[in-house]
Design a protein around this nucleic acid. Structure first.
Length: 577
DNA sequence: GCCGTTTTCGGCCCGACTGTTTTCAGTCG
């Protein structure tokens, strides 16, 4: 059985939980949490590296002791410390920390006083009214615990960025219409363009903060007010989303926006950096002693600690602070850099609009080119094209004379189970661009799925791999593939990978974009539009590309038409049979 | 448990809100 980084991360997380419940040194607890995060986000497969006898790189927050535990877990799948901790307290006890309002102290009290070890026992204790008698607990806490335990059945989940965006927009407009209000902006993971959003964060500037929080909690879609003070408040909406509000004065706008945008890890790193320079950074500004030295804008906050502005999409403590300090932050790609779209559908397969309508819409967006890439015959549900229908479609594309835009003849061809393509080479040879994609047999083993895709990338007529992991956010897991192998093959063969901008997909993910950049593979940010209105989805793809550190030069479709043709044509000519 | 522009020892991000207290601990973001 192989040990994944996620397994190591979970072990460290559980150790941290149990240590905390056991009242250990909080900084020791923090060390384990940090290690859990670092390993969880690491691209390098730690266990595989250990097995191959490779030396692990120096990782932040991993010293001699944790490095030893890393090796121990990689080799055995177990950690002696965790086993020991589990003997001291029941393992199920850490589940209770998921209940809002229950932290390590209260969990410890519940365990020691009432012998509560599991969620079921907690439920019974709350229902029987045994909790409010404990010191430090009361009626309200007991009721909140009861509610939370019961609603865990209808589990809270993260929500797709586009879905959250709809609720957020309406809420922001509601707040903006209030008198005496200054700026109203979205912060948090929405501003960082994460593919899913756990809650909506809204920042408001106002001189009358309690009027704003008052208005906030009286919004018509509020189901429950979680907290409500003069400068901050939290609610849940009927749709289940949590929304947090923070109100500050205009002079603190930049510091508050920085603080509320996060990520938490980025904030912690920034505050530590400030502290090293004798400064204090909080949501009201940057302070030297009691004197505020910055805070009105985010730029001023970064400047105060000696850094250039760091775009929100990069703020994950994934090396952006070091890059900023070293002057090598990437100039992130912008939506205005995009010169065309290389993945779109029409009525010829499962799109809603004609070739001409799509061409006009692309032209209206200012594109130089649009690739028409309908499905191939295997995808019968999408009316995939066989050679004869494809020929007729190509005729129609050739007849299209929409001025100012170049239509590229393309196909989204299925990669069959054995890695062969769904149309013969003689047909594919007539096309400007061939996008290969997996649409079936998602559950092959990692080895077979990887081999299948590698074979497709070997094919001399393939230009690009579409939606490379097949994930559907919140509804389908990515298929199990070795992305590093795929990227290295793409690099060796001069192929490209798509970042599919459809908000259900966002595939490649941010971390894979970063890997692609490291491997020198250009990424194409494509809308996969099935109708003229879906070109707008590109903004979500650009957000993901920026999260993946991609600069303009790293993105294929920032090239103009001539440059693009040189890039997608060259390898095909070179290796065509 | 980690780490070094103040440090190999002594620090480690910081403030708001709730619920319980009667001045604050615990939790959260």
């Amino acid at each position: 059985m192989s040990v994944h980084n996620a397994d190591i991360s979970r072990i460290f997380e559980e150790i941290a939980d149990l240590l905390e419940i056991g009242d250990a040194n909080p900084f020791r607890v923090r060390a384990y949490r940090r290690a859990a995060r670092v390993i969880g986000e690491l691209q390098l497969d730690v266990a595989a590296a250990v097995h191959h006898g490779e030396t692990l790189p120096k990782l932040p927050g991993i010293g001699d002791d944790l490095s030893g535990k890393l090796h121990e877990i990689a080799r055995t799948g177990h950690c002696a410390l965790l086993d020991r901790l589990r003997k001291q307290a029941p393992a199920t006890i850490t589940d209770l920390l998921a209940i809002p309002g229950l932290g390590p102290r209260r969990v410890r009290t519940l365990y020691r006083e009432l012998d509560v070890q599991t969620m079921e026992q907690l439920h019974r204790a709350a229902r029987d009214g045994r909790i409010h008698t404990l010191h430090g607990f009361g009626e309200k806490t007991e009721l909140n615990v009861l509610r939370a335990v019961e609603s865990r059945l209808s589990k809270a989940h993260r929500c797709k960025l586009t879905v959250a965006a709809q609720y957020a927009k309406a809420y922001v407009e509601y707040l903006r219409s209030a008198p005496g209000i200054g700026r109203v902006v979205l912060a948090g993971s929405m501003r960082r363009m994460r593919d899913t959003v756990g809650d909506i964060d809204i920042l408001v500037t106002s001189e009358a903060s309690s009027d704003v929080t008052e208005r906030f909690v009286h919004y018509g879609e509020v189901r429950q007010v979680l907290s409500h003070g003069p400068t901050r408040a939290s609610v849940t909406l009927h749709c289940g989303l949590q929304v947090d509000l923070r109100v500050v004065r205009a002079e603190s706008y930049g510091a508050a926006l920085h603080y509320f945008t996060g990520s938490r890890a980025h904030n912690i790193a920034m505050r530590a950096l400030a502290q090293q320079q004798g400064l204090k950074l909080n949501e009201y500004g940057v302070f030297r002693n009691a004197r505020r030295v910055a805070g009105e804008t985010e730029e001023s906050v970064y400047a105060a600690v000696g850094l250039p502005f760091i775009p929100p999409e990069l703020r994950e403590d994934h090396g952006e602070i070091e890059a900023a300090r070293g002057g090598y932050l990437p100039q992130l790609v912008r939506i205005t850099d995009i010169k065309g779209d290389l993945h779109s559908h029409t009525r010829w397969s499962d799109g809603y609009d004609s070739v001409e309508a799509m061409a006009l819409a692309a032209k209206a967006r200012g594109y130089e080119y649009l690739a028409i890439t309908d499905h191939s015959r295997r995808l019968t549900a999408a009316h995939g094209l066989d050679p004869e229908r494809l020929r007729r479609q190509l005729d129609e594309i050739a007849r299209n004379t929409t001025p100012g835009i170049t239509l590229l003849k393309g196909i989204e061809v299925d990669i069959l189970e054995d890695g062969a393509l769904d149309l013969p080479d003689s047909v594919l040879q007539q096309l400007d661009i061939v996008i290969a994609a997996v649409h079936s047999r998602f559950n092959l083993s990692r080895a077979r799925q990887t081999e299948r895709i590698l074979r497709a990338l070997e094919h001399p007529l393939v230009t690009m791999l579409a939606h490379p992991t097949g994930r559907l956010i919140e509804s389908r897991e990515p298929y199990d593939v070795d992305m590093l192998q795929i990227l290295r093959k793409a690099s060796a063969r001069g192929r490209f990978l798509e970042l599919n901008a459809h908000p259900e997909r966002l595939d490649l993910s941010d971390t894979y974009c970063h890997m692609a950049k490291d491997e020198g593979v250009l990424v194409s940010v494509n809308s996969d539009a099935h109708g003229v209105s879906q070109f707008d989805n590109l903004q979500y793809g650009i957000g993901q590309a920026r999260r993946g550190w991609l600069a303009r030069k790293d993105v294929l479709n920032t090239r103009n038409c001539a440059q693009l043709r040189a890039l997608i044509g060259a390898p095909r000519r070179r290796t065509a049979p």
